[in-house]
Write a protein that binds this DNA or RNA. Structure first.
Lengths: 235, 235
DNA sequence: CGTGTGATTGACGCCTGTCAACGTCTGTGG
DNA sequence: CCACAGACGTTGACAGGCGTCAATCACACG
């Protein structure tokens, strides 16, 4: 599963504006470089599994990962996507609980592993880092709250439109306005919380309405403004 | 709205096992006592409002508060309840964002106000406090993730059963097995994400099935085990 | 006693989940 | 090179859960 390739240097990651490690001292970065592990994952690989006790967090250097919970009927609910610069798995490390989600690669990834002890040591000794991580957690909490409200109040159609906008914003589009991220219909269903068939039908409707163009998993955004209105997205 | 009564002493609050301030030094507790404000609120009072910039957090000494977001149609979605020992409003203070929820009193409350600067100062200077708050945020994040999954996958009936179990666990029942917390039908609807009428009908069904007894807002739990099974609650 | 808020009930219909059948594509093994 | 399995996508039929609208009742409060 894991393939050996070039290990990224924390120093370089540090330059990445989105990385949380920008608050570490040089000495701490060295410590991190020494302590961390690094691995290469392919689509479908699992980084950690819901219900297991974590022994560290992961920092994504490249690729895309989905975090999901498995419900009672075995149906997955995607909670969030993580990409370059994001850190995942810190929640259970810091709350002292079991992992509440499974992390699965959906686009080949390079991911560094940071042991819990290192993470906690940084938090204890570097208040800037601590505040930074706190900010990340709190922002994530705000996103989760919006997610709850949306899923509770909007129709499936509205949520699907919203997700298309979200994916464009988060992962971008190519020259031809096609979403960069490629998801199966089932994955779409697992984000908006509906059945695969409903996603297929609604995407078809969006296509008929000329909001999007479909070509397999490639989705081209034609009418972003109309999708925003439909999904009640205001910015 | 705010009524003067006896101001609680932080020293005493500190003894409360659930308070996050247990990690503060004596000196810091004194500082907190000096810096904090305290006020008494009645049912319906608003502590802070969604979309405003917060200038501090609140620690609940007594009473119950609901945190909710207002959706596009003006429909509220209750995100969580806070009670004695809980701290609210820290999210936006630490993420540097606007408040993402409104906090409204549903049971007369005594609440202390902690300025942002005090909060952040504690976080910078006391890593135990910092870790403690981090843990709270991370636990809350886990709860939010479960909430998302439940609301996305379970039926309204299942969610309503689940909420009854949750309310019993969180706020307890009196000698007669009646839920201590008293909510309107609309508030129930705003938790499970449905229409008020649906809540009324389903509660009636639960009553017909002898799972509960209804007497206005008093809800008596008769068959906790069956409600758990119905709501897919496993512990 | 009028007013307002909350609770209840009924009618109605659409959105959406489920089931089933079928098409498409890819990779694998013979 | 072909057959086959398996994953994914698509479409149709169908029912029922649940939202919406409207009317009525119960109760508290000024």
């Amino acid at each position: 599963m894991k393939i050996k390739q070039v290990t990224p240097i924390c120093d370089e990651c540090e330059k990445n504006i989105r990385s949380i490690f920008k608050k570490l001292t040089d000495e701490e970065v060295n410590e991190l470089t020494f302590e961390k592990g690094c691995a290469f994952y392919k689509r479908g690989d699992i980084i950690y599994h819901e219900g297991n006790r974590p022994n560290g967090s992961y920092c994504i250097s490249k690729g895309i990962v989905k975090l999901f919970k498995t419900g009672v009927e075995g149906k997955d609910q995607i909670i969030k996507f993580a990409k370059k610069g994001d850190i995942i798995g810190y929640r259970s490390v810091l709350s002292g609980e079991l992992s509440c989600t499974t992390a699965k690669v959906i686009e080949d990834a390079t991911i560094c592993f940071i042991p819990s002890s290192t993470m906690i040591s940084f938090m204890k000794n570097n208040s800037d880092f601590s505040l930074e991580l706190m900010q990340i957690a709190c922002t994530e909490l705000g996103v989760a709250n919006s997610f709850i409200t949306g899923i509770a109040q909007k129709t499936v159609r509205e949520r699907l439109a919203e997700i298309l906008i979200y994916l464009k914003r988060e992962f971008g589009v190519d020259d031809d306005n096609v979403l960069q991220i490629s998801l199966t219909r089932e994955e779409f269903a697992n984000i908006v919380g509906t059945a695969t068939e409903s996603v297929i039908r609604l995407l078809s409707e969006f296509k008929d309405d000329k909001y999007i163009e479909l070509n397999g998993r490639k989705i081209k955004i034609l009418e972003e403004a109309k999708l925003k209105r439909l999904g009640n997205v205001f910015n």
